[in-house]
């Protein structure tokens, strides 16, 4: 046997193997992150994808494509082939693109590989603020309308939605000052340039522990570990229950038309990754709560989130396009 035929044989054998066992993923996967480096979506993504790689057997090459509250990244992933080699790592924002008039896309155009985790919002105020509970803040705001300054992350962001939720159940007239993100907003809060700010637990916890900030209320129906002495929003405003559980979330998505075996493989890998002790530790450090839903269950979860939030914005007059026009049912 000469050299050429050995090579030929080897090549044939190689082709046969790949042909018979061509199993996803054959090559590295691209992961597109909706937000910039160092943000919470970025941090969650970089942690979970590293763990999912082990179960996929290939690398996930991550790229940040921030801009337009994630519209740029979402549009990009949607424009890629549905072969499962481009994943979208995002937060809750696409569920509001329709009513905010930003894009026709939402997570209903994607298959939820895994809704990884969610964050519980708290109402945060700085240490020198005159209020110690949500009841006191409410009383003050109602006695002095349009005086108290609320830090916000802009339209459609967490603070904005929570403000609308409170307005949906009671009189609540505050000056809303938008910042470029949670970090700058909380910095302004610590300096006393705004009076309070609804933020995710992750952003609040360390500042509370250090005594630089106080939590006035937890937006949850049940007590959160470490916040046993903080008022539940439903204790102050029982009607708030209709919105809960609600909070920002982080997830992994792939195009809806991706092959079934790809969806299954991805779902399994990420579900295992969420269960890894490293990710669990990260979540508790970060102050987020595990969701770990995929497929049909995740779709239902996402639809409920979208329906609650979009109708809230519609009723509060903040929606630019009615959810009814978009076919989103009222909760």
């Amino acid at each position: 046997m000469n050299r050429k035929s050995i090579f030929g044989l080897a090549a044939a054998a190689l082709m046969a193997t790949t042909g018979a066992f061509a199993e996803y993923p054959e090559k590295n996967i691209h992961g597109i992150i909706q937000w910039g480096a160092g943000g919470s979506t970025d941090t969650v993504t970089r942690t979970v994808s590293k763990l999912a790689e082990k179960h996929l057997g290939k690398e996930i090459v991550l790229v940040n494509r921030p801009g337009g509250t994630g519209v740029i990244a979402t549009t990009y992933v949607n424009s890629r082939p549905a072969d499962g080699y481009t994943l979208l790592f995002g937060a809750e924002n696409p569920q509001l693109y329709g009513v905010m008039g930003l894009s026709d896309l939402s997570y209903s155009d994607f298959y939820p590989v895994n809704v990884l985790a969610r964050n519980v919002p708290v109402i945060l105020t700085h240490k020198d603020a005159p209020w110690d509970t949500m009841s006191e803040l409410l009383e003050y705001v109602q006695a002095n309308p349009n005086e108290v300054k609320m830090g916000s992350t802009g339209p459609g962001g967490l603070s904005f939605v929570v403000d609308n939720m409170i307005q949906g159940v009671t009189d609540f007239d505050v000056k809303s000052i938008p910042f470029d993100g949670t970090g700058p907003g909380v910095t302004a809060l610590l300096g006393g340039h705004v009076d309070f700010m609804p933020v995710g637990l992750s952003a609040a916890r360390e500042n509370i522990r250090a005594g630089r900030a106080k939590a006035l209320a937890v937006l949850s129906t049940e007590q959160i570990e470490g916040f046993e002495n903080t008022q539940l929003i439903t204790d102050v405003l029982p009607e708030f229950k209709q919105y809960l559980p609600w909070g920002p979330f982080y997830g992994v998505f792939v195009k809806k038309d991706a092959p079934d075996d790809v969806k299954q493989k991805l779902s399994e890998a990420f579900s295992k990754a969420v269960k890894e002790p490293e990710f669990q530790n990260f979540l508790s450090n970060f102050g987020a709560i595990e969701v770990n839903l995929s497929g049909e269950e995740a779709t239902q979860w996402l639809n409920r989130w979208q329906s609650v939030t979009t109708w809230l914005l519609q009723d509060g007059g903040a929606a630019k396009v009615s959810p009814e026009e978009l076919g989103i049912p009222r909760p």
Partner: peptide
């Protein structure tokens, strides 16, 4: 972000 990933609590 790196500090979170490595199990630390960045904050005050």
């Amino acid at each position: 972000g790196a500090l979170y990933i490595h199990g630390l609590n960045p904050g005050p």
